[in-house]
């Protein structure tokens, strides 16, 4: 019975964990593959370090967004302090609210990593085109931000529901 009584907070916590976990995994893959390409360019041309470093870091933002969603959810459900007494329905809603950030964060970080790899290749060939090279992976960021927005709006919205 104790499980059923606490199922709401368990579901909400699962949502927070998934958001941080999948977005973090996606970012680590994205930053990792971009880092390999960046190291290749710096081996041949150390002067490009600062440019390729910026491109490498771009897929890292999803991990930060996942952390933010996880943190806000934990605060809302009272795990970080206060009362953790929430209904099963509310817990399930928190879980659903975290999923956009979890899935979009994971996929967009990997896609952004690939776009960064391509842009690092562009900088290797034409260092003067760095500004344009930044734009291509940055476009992928749009979808991570949209997911962050919907997750955060949903989490704050659920807090005000009397269910």
């Amino acid at each position: 019975m104790i499980i059923l009584e606490n199922l709401g907070v368990a579901l909400a916590l699962l949502g927070a964990v998934l958001a941080a976990l999948w977005a973090g995994i996606g970012s680590s893959i994205g930053v990792g593959i971009a880092g390999e390409a960046a190291a290749g360019v710096v081996t041949e041309d150390p002067a490009q370090f600062s440019k390729v470093l910026l491109l490498q870091l771009l897929p890292g933002t999803q991990g930060i967004y996942g952390l933010l969603i996880g943190f806000v959810t934990l605060t809302q459900i009272g795990v970080m302090g206060g009362s953790a007494d929430i209904s099963v329905i509310k817990g399930a809603l928190y879980l659903a609210a975290c999923l956009p950030m979890a899935f979009v964060g994971y996929k967009s970080a990997i896609s952004q990593g690939k776009a960064s790899v391509a842009s690092i290749g562009l900088v290797a060939k034409r260092p003067d085109q760095f500004g344009k090279a930044m734009i291509f992976p940055a476009m992928v960021e749009t979808y991570a931000i949209l997911a962050l927005l919907i997750s955060i709006l949903a989490i704050f919205g659920i807090g005000g529901l009397a269910i």
């Binding site: 593959i33 390999e36 390409a37 960046a38 190291a39 290749g40 360019v41 081996t43 041949e44 041309d45 790899v117 690092i120 290749g121 290797a124 060939k125």
Partner: peptide, 17 residues
């Protein structure tokens, strides 16, 4: 496909020469 990322980046620089 991610196995040669470092290698391809170095080749991209070498292609300049």
């Amino acid at each position: 496909e991610n196995q040669y990322l470092y290698a391809v980046a170095r080749i991209r620089c070498r292609e300049q020469r």
